[in-house]
């Protein structure tokens, strides 16, 4: 009897205080939703990647072990896609990071009117990737592209250049569109990093006779290591998995010039209907991505200990 009376008001008070019977109640819906679209797809894709699964042969899906992975690794066009993706990622991540850093250094200057620029900077990043891609498709078009028109008017070229349908230029064109779209995020992160650097630190270096480059290299840059790490990890993820841009800009062509890895996985799955190979390709992509992230973490951790 005593115990019961003691227990009841306690429980009632707990409910009145709005403490859920168990904290899991508030977390469960999210966990369920995330798990539904993560764990099941992951397992399903893992299983698919070890089977011969071709949509045109729906009744024959034998277990083939690692054959899909081996096939993909030995396939010349998959290797071409991997090479393209590496070139794209290295150039794009470097360009996005450097441009972001330069823009941040610029916007950090106390000059009137730069406020407008800070608002403007966000826009390429806010619009749909598809829209950004089509904008650049219109700009770089070989028949009427505005960029061609501009170059012609400035006397830099004498005839229109088919940026997107030239084997040599198409990948570069996709990179330009990608950089235009992606630099705002690094710029914002670097700018925030710059704004928390106490001016005294930089002034002290100036007094000690450090030039502009030395101040940047030995004072400012080491303090930007945290945003740099984030930018590298995030932008590598974006660059390795880029898909929307290729879809609207080039469709992977001309030939295989802009067939990046994720586009190749998409084509294997949806054009050639080889689900097993598509899944294997996706897993290779995910593994490479994790490897890159591990390398960055390693490099920048080591660097951090030095300073």
């Amino acid at each position: 009897m005593q115990a019961e009376i003691g227990l009841r008001p306690n429980l009632v008070r707990r409910w009145a205080n709005g403490v859920p019977a168990h904290p899991w109640l508030t977390v469960a819906p999210v966990l369920a939703l995330v798990a539904l679209f993560t764990i099941f797809p992951f397992i399903y894709a893992a299983v698919t990647s070890t089977r011969q699964m071709i949509l045109t042969l729906p009744d024959q899906t034998p277990f083939v072990g690692l054959k899909n992975y081996l096939d993909v690794l030995q396939d010349a066009s998959a290797r071409q896609a991997a090479v393209n993706a590496v070139v794209f990622s290295v150039v794009a991540v470097t360009a996005v990071t450097l441009l972001g850093l330069l823009v941040a250094l610029l916007l950090n200057q106390p000059i009137r009117g730069f406020g407008i620029l800070r608002a403007l900077v966000l826009l390429p990043w806010a619009i749909p990737l598809v829209s950004a891609g089509i904008i650049w498709r219109l700009l770089l078009h070989g028949d009427f592209g505005a960029f061609n028109g501009l170059l012609l008017q400035l006397g830099i070229v004498h005839s229109y250049i088919p940026w997107l349908s030239s084997r040599q230029l198409a990948l570069g064109a996709v990179i330009v569109a990608h950089v235009w779209r992606e630099f705002p995020l690094p710029a914002i992160l670097f700018l925030a990093g710059l704004q928390v650097i106490p001016p005294d630190v930089v002034d002290a270096a100036t007094v000690d006779g450090a030039g502009a480059w030395q101040r940047f290299r030995y004072v400012i840059l080491p303090l930007l290591k945290a945003p740099l790490l984030i930018v590298l990890v995030y932008e590598t993820m974006i660059a390795v998995t880029v898909f929307d841009l290729v879809y609207v800009l080039t469709g992977g062509g001309p030939g295989s010039a802009t067939t990046l890895f994720s586009w190749y996985a998409y084509a294997a799955t949806f054009h050639f209907l080889n689900l097993g190979q598509g899944a294997a390709l996706s897993f290779i992509m995910a593994a490479v991505l994790l490897l890159f992230i591990a390398i960055y973490l390693r490099l920048l951790r080591v660097g951090r200990d030095d300073t």
């Binding site: 797809p41 992951f42 996706s282 992230i293």
Partner: peptide, 11 residues
């Protein structure tokens, strides 16, 4: 961290 393309078909 899972790339969208990897889970596209199962989704």
């Amino acid at each position: 961290l899972l790339p969208g393309m990897a889970v596209a078909i199962p989704t």
